[in-house]
């Protein structure tokens, strides 16, 4: 598989804030890549650079073989975006918005109307289709915004936190849509705060923090990094005791609260943990052995709970 999106050493700063710090990434054609990272990691900045909204300070990128910096118009003909914040016209109706964007993308009048109708149906917006967007709820806007980036199919789709604010049913709809699109060969880069979402949808996951890639791989590969078979989760309510436990166990990555998670492959490792706690006279409120999740990955990589 060839890379349809490729970035090399992309950097972008806002004043003294380094939002992207020499980030390199290759996204194979037809894959879904989940971009994970805590708030402020640089996800939106990355998407904005790749969608020609921001000009990176240095580095380069190609999308569908076109250079981002020298051929932005060609790049724009290959991408569709749904940003973190809605981008639709409040005074127009849902249908008018979709028809408008379709027509701007050179669809004929009837074709644009057909596409709009189909998408409104797919996202369960038919009943409200002819009401002005300003009367929509937050989730309805979000859905319309997504629909607007699907009016004309593009080979590369960027979704910035697409399911934030959606109810569970709508989230499922979106997930199905992403899977459908993937099956038609669309390459998708989506950012998300929900690890479950990345686990469900993404072929590959890229974790970024402070504008750098800190881990990359399939969900399974990342989980293996934390503890291939199993992890031990220790819960201690008292903050003082918890801190002490972190010290004796040699953990520093976890945040202020939440469980302490340690790799615990095999009985021996588990026994080691228990012995250490015993020696320090620490009585955990809860201690459990379980399969690692992406949450564990996230915590251990970024040092921030998510």
């Amino acid at each position: 598989m060839t890379a349809i999106v490729e970035l090399r050493h992309l950097s972008k700063s806002f004043g003294t804030t380094v939002a992207l710090d020499g980030l390199s990434l290759a996204i194979p054609e037809g894959s879904v890549v989940g971009l994970l990272g805590p708030n402020g990691a640089g996800k939106t900045t990355l998407i904005n650079c790749l969608t020609t909204l921001l000009r990176p300070d240095s580095g380069s990128a190609t999308i569908a073989g076109h250079d981002l910096l020298t051929e932005p118009d060609k790049v724009r003909a290959h991408i569709a975006v749904t940003g973190q914040f809605a981008a639709i016209d409040e005074t127009l109706t849902g249908r008018e918005n979709l028809v408008f964007f379709g027509r701007l993308l050179r669809l004929g009048k009837d074709e644009a109307k057909d596409r709009a109708g189909g998408l409104l149906e797919r996202f369960g917006l038919s009943a409200e289709a002819d009401k002005p967007v300003k009367t929509y709820s937050g989730g309805m806007r979000r859905k319309l915004d997504l629909a607007a980036s699907l009016v004309v199919p593009r080979p590369v789709l960027f979704l910035d936190e697409p399911t934030t604010g959606l109810d569970p049913v709508s989230r499922e709809t979106l997930w199905d849509t992403v899977r459908d699109l993937r099956s038609t060969g669309v390459t998708i880069l989506l950012t998300t705060q929900y690890l479950e979402e990345a686990d469900q949808l993404a072929d590959r996951i890229v974790v970024i923090d402070h504008g750098k890639v800190v881990a990359e791989g399939t969900a399974q590969e990342l989980k293996d990094r934390v503890g291939g078979g199993a992890v031990c989760e220790i819960r201690i309510a008292d903050p003082g005791v918890r801190e002490k436990a972190m010290a004796v166990l040699g953990r520093s990555a976890e945040g202020e609260d939440g469980p302490i998670v340690l790799p615990a492959e095999g009985v021996e490792a588990l026994a080691g943990i228990v012995k250490t706690l015993e020696a320090a006279k620490i009585e955990p409120d809860d201690l459990a052995l379980r399969k690692p999740t992406l949450d564990d990955v996230f915590r251990s990589l970024t040092g921030r709970p998510e």
Binding site: D73, R76, V81, A87, F101, L104, L105
Partner: peptide, 8 residues
């Protein structure tokens, strides 16, 4: 912003 990401 949406207009700017479109080939217009």
């Amino acid at each position: 912003n949406r207009l700017r990401t479109m080939p217009i």
